[in-house]
Amino acid sequence: MKAIVFGGTTGMGRAIAQRLAERGDAVFLLSIDQEDLARSAADLKARHPQQADLGYAVCNLEEPQGFAAALDAADAALGNFDTVIVTAALFASQEALEADIELTRRLLTVNYANTVVFCEHVRKRLLARGGGHLAVFSSVAGDRGRKPVMIYGSSKAGLSVYLEALDHKYHEAGLHVLCVKPGFVKTGMTAGLKPPPFAGEPEGVAKDVIRALDRGTPLIYAPRIWRLVMLVIRHLPRFVMRKIAF
């Protein structure tokens, strides 16, 4: 596998990058911060000194004009990538979003519009070379309109629908689309929030994602128990959803 991990310097993205490098896959990291990228790449290099194909480039989901250049850099370093994993996104609490309309606009733009634009760049390149894998992190928050994730969840709902249709449309052509819906995972993104039951660890999610990539699965919940949790929540009637805080 020749994989780009967009968001590979933190949380679940980094866990995935580590796991891929560990089994000998070529890895190219994309992230906002140059210094952070250098540290994470040095880490992968130190862990796997025999691994030659490692690289990184700065890429910011808020700046879609830079997407093509970042993908060019990855292509140059890896010699035509065949797998792209996107964990990068913005997160903010519902409280913070309701208090700051500009933050809401940014989050919706990054998590929905710009992520879809990035995927479209990737789709064209992968289809041109006969297919490949595209795994994108959406969220269980997009499965049902819920009070604590009203705005964040809606951005992920849009993303999930796009990924579903992308699979429907291009599966035949050899594009494997994987929509990952993490529940609560203990990373820097959720720092300071109280972990609910079934909270996962980034390493566990990474393992599930890579297995799904290998098998061609179109959708996974991580940890897996969240599929059941969300099944129940999707079927709760409106009068219940109005009452509960979840």
Partner: peptide, 14 residues
């Protein structure tokens, strides 16, 4: 601060 996520190797001299 929980440090367990900050687990990068920065350098190793064999």
């Amino acid at each position: 601060v929980g440090t367990q996520l900050a687990n990068r190797i920065l350098a190793f001299d064999a």
